[in-house]
Design a binder for these strands. Structure first.
Length: 309
DNA sequence: TTGTGTTTTATTGCCTCC
DNA sequence: GGAGGCAATAAAACACAA
């Protein structure tokens, strides 16, 4: 900030001040922005203000430095400065504060406001415009960062939910497989026994069943449990893929018919009953790996979820 | 002191609106 | 066509570690 504040920081400033510009350029309206007692002092960039004074008569120019290069002052000392490329000067803290407050009120700049601010701060209207333009750009960048953070945390939350559901699903699948194996084993055992039965024809069926560790009732129970687990899986699948993810059909298979109307008029219960009705009691298709195509990979690979890191 | 990264001020070129 | 906005960029000013 050194070199940009105060009236006596550069030879150029001194020269210009002595020739054209009073140092304290702050005008009354500024004071209303600051606490009583803290008188505003926009002492920096006074050389800029002198440029304004010098060139006001030249009409509008986009770069006052460019216009300045062609100015003939007829003054050798000044000429030396004026033919050097002008250095940038930072605004003073007070000037920036004032502009910030103004920006908070309204981030667009109408011509009258620009002129007033320029007057109040002792700057060129063009400088005010540039400051607002750059400030808007900074605000936009900040806003983008905020939006990014919000989206990222939302993504993280959803992903955590998904991961836990996926884990739960895997657990249930394993459980179902275990029970299915058990049931099939039982079935195999009992059919072998009945074959034996048929061969011997002598042994009472009851004795065979009694010899078995599991009774008929137990087998039925296990199959019932397995069926209910199957229902749970189906329902969990529906929860995960039916409504929330547009990328999966109800059977868990990657589907491209994302927005097609629901082709099934069956409720979940009806569907379950329907599938059960096709199967003999306590026999249902064992879940293969392919039945639930790994949704995890697709979930993350899908463009919708890809994050622009 | 110096090298380096960041911030701020300003320019340029393009676009839109009146 | 001129004014003003924006994105991209340059360059000066600044901060800071080594």
């Amino acid at each position: 900030m050194a070199g940009s504040t105060g009236c006596s920081n550069s030879n150029l400033s001194v020269l210009l001040q002595s020739q054209r510009v009073p140092c304290a350029a702050a005008s009354q309206p500024l004071e209303s922005f600051f606490l009583p007692g803290s008188s505003p002092s926009f002492l920096g960039s006074r050389s800029m203000m002198s440029f304004e004074d010098v060139h006001q008569a030249n009409g509008s120019t986009r770069s006052f430095f460019r216009a300045f290069d062609h100015e003939d002052n007829g003054d050798d000392d000044l000429d030396e400065y004026f033919h050097q490329p002008e250095k940038k000067r930072r605004l003073t803290v007070d000037q920036v504060q004032f502009l910030e407050k103004s920006f908070e009120l309204e981030n667009k700049l109408e011509p009258e406001r620009k002129t007033q601010l320029a007057k109040d701060l002792g700057l060129q209207p063009r400088q005010i415009a540039i400051w607002f333009q750059n400030r808007r750009a900074r605000w936009k960048t900040k806003q983008l960062e905020k939006d990014y953070d919000v989206l990222q945390s939302s993504y993280n939350g959803l992903k955590a939910d998904y991961d836990s559901l996926h884990k739960e699903n895997e657990k249930l699948k394993a459980e179902v497989n275990l029970l299915t194996d058990k049931v099939l084993l039982k079935e195999k055992g009992s059919s072998e026994l009945s074959d034996k039965d048929a061969l011997s024809q002598e042994q009472p069926k009851k004795a065979v069943l009694a010899a078995d560790s599991a009774s008929e009732g137990e087998v039925s129970k296990i199959s019932a449990v397995a069926c209910s687990k199957q229902d749970e899986i189906s329902s969990a699948k529906s929860d995960i893929f039916d409504s929330d993810s547009p990328h999966y059909a109800a059977d868990g298979v990657h589907s491209s018919y994302v927005f097609e109307p629901d082709q099934s008029d069956l409720s979940q219960d009806e569907e379950d009953n329907f599938s059960k009705s096709l199967l003999p009691p306590y026999v249902f298709p064992k879940l293969e790996d392919g039945d639930y195509s790994d949704p995890h990979a697709s979930f993350e690979d899908h463009a919708f979820w890809s994050w622009p890191y």
